[in-house]
Design a protein around this nucleic acid. Sequence first.
DNA 1: CGGTTCATTGATAGCGGTCAAGGATTGTGG
DNA 2: CCACAATCCTTGACCGCTATCAATGAACCG
Lengths: 245, 245
Amino acid sequence: MNSCPGSSNTAFKVACSSCNLRELCLPVGLTHSDIERLDRLVATRRNVARGDTLFRTGDSFQSLYAVRTGFFKTCVSAEDGRDQVTGFQMAGELLGLDGISSDRHACDAVALEDSQVCVIPYGQLEVLSREFTDLQHQFHKIMSREIVRDHGVMLLLGSMRAEERLAAFLLNLTQRLRARGFSASSLVLRMTREEIGSYLGLKLETVSRTFSKFQEDGLLEVKQRQIRIVSQDGLQALLNGAPAY
Amino acid sequence: MNSCPGSSNTAFKVACSSCNLRELCLPVGLTHSDIERLDRLVATRRNVARGDTLFRTGDSFQSLYAVRTGFFKTCVSAEDGRDQVTGFQMAGELLGLDGISSDRHACDAVALEDSQVCVIPYGQLEVLSREFTDLQHQFHKIMSREIVRDHGVMLLLGSMRAEERLAAFLLNLTQRLRARGFSASSLVLRMTREEIGSYLGLKLETVSRTFSKFQEDGLLEVKQRQIRIVSQDGLQALLNGAPAY
DNA sequence: CGGTTCATTGATAGCGGTCAAGGATTGTGG
DNA sequence: CCACAATCCTTGACCGCTATCAATGAACCG
């Protein structure tokens, strides 16, 4: 509880229409009046402390979540306990699309730092998107974009070497940070080497070694989770089939 | 042209309502009257000869496609020419969801045998799904299922060894064939070793060697593309963390 | 039937995994 | 504020899985 008027865990209302993430989130491309309808839909927020789960595999699916502040990972796990990080989500990105298919969540979503999400009741989103063509279309685009993103990750996992994977990962992160107004060259990783490794299909030692190699090669400066990109072009070149040396 | 009354490349009309794939395809769970609305939507078919593409990366996105007969692969490619098979689609499965995000297709869809698809104009699907709640929900489920499937592939690519990958691939294939009324133990692969390898993040030689090893181990009988599953349980055990020996 | 594509198998090499140890950082409780 | 524990990161040595290179054989197709 804080002392803001009307504050609570789920108050502190910031409407979609006045949210500075609206250009990155569900309202992209909607008219102002459509966004005001969204405001009624997205009535609640939820705080998730670092390390806590927003939802777990098997949880009943009720809502989608838009990250307002903070950082998440999603992971799936096999019967034998192995697990795989399937993505990292930052402000403006949607969580929970996996749940629609079976009315149960099919992955875990874990906050990697103290975070806040907007709760989007899925049933109401379906109702509203029947009424507002643009919202419907925008929602479909977001699902489709997730599919396209996943295919890109498959390409990475199926055909790239360790250095290429890490370079692709860093470039993707910085691009998304840049879209949110952050520096393109300096970043603080919110996840461990092990989580990066899981996402990239590598072991944590390989991630660490590759960071070190990038530093030796003058591409990065690495101090634990503090990363400074020295040569964006060098990283990009690694992806464009440049030889490893 | 053949001699059927009213025949043409796009005639030979079989309505969704009388299609034997309706339990696997878009109409799943719809009432009979809803399906009849779908019939109007899915007005055309398209034949795709083996080796031809249904659509290519960059093509303008207009329609989704439901596989009626035949078999497809989808693949994405990187700038440097590397490519990755992202999936294999059989009767009743939907192609083209990738195109919604940017109004252009984001992968190639190639027929691996002479095939026929139902053309589902996307704009009309959006219109119809605003009117029919069940259709809307079913469509969302299908997109979500694709996302969940992709996450499963990431798990496979990110954390499984070659034998586990191939076992998972075969079990997935047979499960889908069984759902279509085919034998669970005997199948003919429609794709090359190289295509399997691309999908599984392995080289074709590794795929071939692993097939041979499965045969030596009494799990399969392999004659080129003819596969007989001798021990489904053995394959399943490989996936459940059984040691490799 | 001859060419082309596809599959199998062997030999070898290299990338990334595994095991292990030590160091840095963070957080917590006294 | 310090001490201690827990977590995370780095680095080294070695190994094994899969890639690579190469040759042969089988199947398919025009």
